[in-house]
């Protein structure tokens, strides 16, 4: 699916003294199968932007097109497009309401009007995807699960609708380090196996470095950078001007460079940085 934001503007509480501009003149194109990170400090408009991309908000100005169809309209065509987009809000476990895990995950597929048998297949499939055993977990009460498990149930509820585009708003917020690692691994696998378009909102640079290939940087509702993750995430001046810091690996490489080592600073992952340091050390030894 091709997602296009054209001249998108959004103001909350328009026409009241509480009015607050959240997005200004955002232009964006996201093609099928892309992995895009939406990055920005708190209050920079990340969440508003992705809710627009999912067609859940009405723009104050401009529009969002999903394969050429205006996203927020109430037409059947727009509805059909929106249904191809799955969005997990921040803390998606807050939207759990059913009495059993099975029924919770089945809510989406049932709303699609699928048959009982198809719903059951999809629920089992989605629970497997998030690493929960359908036979063991299906009958459990979701509110009695751990926070991490509830999050996975909520994500299964979205995956069960078989979206073409998956939008995750701060997917790892509040998880422990192991839960984070595991979720990131799974998200990457979903992208590979299902050919999903992935849009991830985060202000965790190390996570984005692992997950996405392209980064859109927001500052006060404006897009201030849009490009390959390697370029945006290693540009310390740019990131700091947007109220963020650089990934740990990049910070280390910058420090080494300042100390006189001729390392490249665009290695985002710890293993990449290690390889770069080794390469430079070997080169320096050869010269000596």
């Amino acid at each position: 699916m091709l997602i296009e934001a054209e001249n998108l503007n959004h103001t909350y509480a328009l026409g009241t003294p509480l009015a607050q501009v959240a997005l200004r003149d955002v232009n964006l194109q996201i093609g099928p199968g892309e992995r895009v990170g939406i990055l920005g400090a708190s209050g920079s408009g990340k969440t508003t932007l992705v809710q627009h991309l999912a067609g859940l908000l009405q723009p104050t100005e401009g529009r969002v097109l999903l394969d050429g169809i205006v996203a927020h309209r109430r037409t059947p065509a727009a509805l059909a497009q929106r249904r191809r987009i799955g969005i997990a809000f921040q803390n998606p476990e807050d939207q759990i309401f059913e009495q059993t895990v099975f029924r919770e995950v089945a809510f989406g597929p049932r709303n699609l009007g699928l048959s009982q048998a198809e719903v059951a297949t999809r629920v089992a499939w989605a629970l497997e995807l998030v690493g929960l055993n359908p036979t063991l977990m299906g009958g459990r009460i979701p509110f009695a699960l751990s926070g991490g498990e509830m999050r996975r149930v909520a994500l299964a509820g979205i995956l069960a609708m078989r979206p073409h585009v998956l939008i995750l708003d701060e997917p790892t917020a509040g998880l422990d380090p192991r839960g984070r690692q595991e979720l990131l691994r799974r998200v990457k696998r979903w992208h590979q196996e299902m050919g999903l378009t992935l849009i991830v909102v985060s202000h965790n640079l190390d996570e984005l470095a692992r997950l996405v290939e392209r980064v859109v940087l927001l500052k006060a509702g404006r897009v201030v950078a849009d490009g390959p993750a390697r370029r945006v995430l290693s540009d310390a001046a740019l990131l700091r001007s947007a109220g963020l810091d650089v990934p740990h690996s990049v910070a280390l490489l910058h420090a080494l460079r300042a100390a006189g080592w001729p390392v490249r600073t665009d290695q985002l992952l710890p293993e990449e940085a290690a390889a770069e340091i080794l390469r430079v050390r070997r080169a320096m030894e050869e010269i000596r």
């Binding site: 809710q51 999912a54 859940l56 908000l57 929106r82 249904r83 987009i85 799955g86 969005i87 809000f89 998606p92 807050d94 939207q95 809510f107 989406g108 709303n111 699609l112 509820g157 979205i158 609708m161």
Partner: peptide, 13 residues
């Protein structure tokens, strides 16, 4: 408002 949006994204009407 947030919950309405979240459930609408899951096909609630």
């Amino acid at each position: 408002e947030k919950l309405v949006k979240a459930q609408r994204a899951r096909g609630a009407d």
